[in-house]
């Protein structure tokens, strides 16, 4: 089974982000980057499928030079080879634009299965995987926690709202958007990193892929959330105060 995993490099979870002077992106200089979390689960799912059914795992990532780091990490964890779409203008491309780049690079590989993380930790659009499926003409399913290979194709477990799960079957080739938490992630090893040095990473530029870069969604600007403190002191006896607290938790905060 030939599996392609689309991964993205995003700012580290606890990075202190600042808005750049143009107001359309963050200052990247003092930020550390890491592999997007749900992409790590997509990779893990691919590696486990390969361990069970054999085949090849290829990772693909679009991004500037620094994105090579997450490709090497994925190779270290067990992916067989990588494709790096070198593009510095991802900020001005919308999800459709990125999906077009990915689709153009994936098409000639003729994969059996394409996995993507459910959504990125930076933009959180949750669209790239789904659009990619449309561009490739593959059936797709998202919010996937578990994948089984059957005689006819795949049987997948989807996570729905309020603790519900859905089990569906779909034929191959297919695109799945993987939800975080379905598997136990493997840790990176020294041996993996050393072996990864000998693995192939093919570089492709956006120009070579010839994908249409004109966006349909234009980013107007980004901003940091405003901090606000709204502490309330609930007056009265402990009994009255706790009754008022329950009231507020139930109807204002809606957590009960």
């Amino acid at each position: 089974m030939k599996i392609i995993v689309a991964i993205k490099q995003v700012p580290e979870r606890d990075a202190q982000v600042r808005i750049d002077p143009v107001g359309k992106w963050i200052e990247e200089l003092d930020v550390q980057f890491a592999l997007n979390e749900s992409d790590a689960y997509a990779l893990e799912e691919a590696l486990q499928l390969k361990e069970k059914h054999g085949g090849e795992v290829i990772v693909i990532s679009a991004g500037p030079e620094r994105a090579g780091q997450v490709i090497r990490e994925a190779l270290a964890k067990g992916a067989d080879r990588g494709i790096h779409i070198e593009a510095d203008d991802l900020g001005s491309r919308d999800a459709l634009g990125v999906a077009r780049l990915l689709a153009a690079a994936i098409q000639p590989e003729n994969p059996d299965l394409v996995l993507a993380g459910l959504q990125s930790e930076d933009l959180g659009l949750g669209q790239t995987g789904v659009i990619l499926a449309e561009l490739l003409g593959f059936p797709h399913s998202s919010l996937i926690l578990h994948v089984d290979v059957t005689a006819k194709g795949l049987k997948v477990k989807r996570e729905l709202e309020e603790g519900w799960f859905q089990s569906i079957e779909l034929p191959l080739p297919a695109v799945l958007a993987i939800q975080s938490g379905g598997n136990k992630l493997r840790y990176a090893t020294l041996m993996g990193i050393k072996r990864a040095k000998t693995k192939e990473v093919r570089r492709a530029s956006a120009g070579e892929l010839g994908a249409d870069a004109s966006p349909v969604v234009i980013l107007e600007g980004i901003s940091l959330p405003q901090k606000q403190r709204s502490t309330q002191i609930l007056p009265g006896s402990p009994k009255e105060a706790s009754a008022a607290l329950v009231e507020k938790l139930r109807f204002e905060a809606r957590v009960l």
Partner: peptide
């Protein structure tokens, strides 16, 4: 055991990640 990935432990794996 760890550098070759042979050690599999829930807590250890979590710490490493």
């Amino acid at each position: 055991a760890v550098n070759t990935g042979a050690w599999d432990d829930d807590h250890g794996g979590k710490l490493f990640l």
